[in-house]
């Protein structure tokens, strides 16, 4: 589904990613963890080209998205993204947030888009909020709407960039619950997170990044009980 080959990203002299190699299979749930500044968000943002890689290649399905000729918009259509700070469209109602892109990009009729939007809102438990504006919602509700908005494009992959980091503690659970439901549907997911318990529970694999390098790539049971690298050991000591 996703293949990353020798991915580098630097901002001027600062090397944020120093050659990442990995691949992610269809239906796999991968948690990307690591200390802040390790490049995990940058790695995620390269996967839908919100950051332009400095060098290296990324394939999503059959498409080399780093190829200059690749249709980036088409790729992004199929890669959903959920941001730390939600980034809902504040001037649109909840339902309009969900219908805008499917209508604009995929050419769905208003009726189709609304039908689908309402179903998704029901799935994330916010069916009664469709006419609200985002500013009226709590953080947890906003993030659930943001997840539904990304799902409305029917993506093959979902990227989560610290989806619960900006939330009050009591709202983390409701968002994680929605994500867990999504795991059960077989969605391919890449999740940058600080929620170790969640990563351990739902992820098939843990990618541990440190200083721009992929230091460990292991199943959670292995990673959390017996991390191989010293950096991962130190990191886990601090966060667990």
């Amino acid at each position: 589904m996703i293949k990353v080959d020798n991915l580098h990203k630097s901002y001027g002299k600062l090397d944020v990613l120093k050659g990442i190699n990995t691949s992610i299979k269809e239906g796999e749930v991968v948690a990307v963890i690591g200390p802040s500044g390790s490049g995990k968000s940058t790695f995620l943002r390269c996967l839908n080209l919100l950051e332009q890689p400095t060098s290296g290649r990324i394939w999503i399905k059959e498409t080399d998205i780093t190829d200059k000729k690749a249709n980036i918009m088409k790729v992004r259509e199929n890669v959903g993204m959920v941001f730390q700070h939600f980034h809902l469209f504040p001037h649109k109602t909840v339902l309009d947030n969900l219908t805008y892109a499917p209508m604009k990009v995929k050419g769905l009729s208003k009726q189709e888009a609304q039908k689908q939007g309402r179903e998704l809102l029901k799935k994330v438990g916010l069916a009664d909020k469709e006419k609200q504006y985002p500013n009226k919602l709590s953080g947890g509700q906003k993030q659930r709407v943001a997840i539904a908005r990304a799902l409305a494009m029917n993506p093959d992959v979902m990227l989560f960039d610290e989806p619960t980091s900006a939330l009050d503690p009591e709202m983390v659970k409701e968002v994680l619950a929605v994500m867990k439901d999504l795991v059960h549907t077989g969605m391919t997911m890449v999740i940058v997170t600080h929620e170790m318990g969640f990563a351990r529970e739902v992820a098939d694999r843990i990618l541990f990044l440190d200083g721009g390098n992929l230091v460990e790539d292991a199943p959670p049971s292995e990673f959390f009980s017996s991390p191989k690298s010293q950096r991962a050991q130190e990191f886990l000591e601090k966060v667990l």
Binding site: E77, F83, H87, A101, R149, M153
Partner: peptide, 19 residues
């Protein structure tokens, strides 16, 4: 983030700007 959210959904530049 508004720009990024629109781009991530595959919305073209002109639509992103206008709507």
């Amino acid at each position: 983030g508004q720009r990024e959210a629109a781009l991530a959904l595959g919305v073209p530049y002109s639509s992103m700007m206008l709507s």
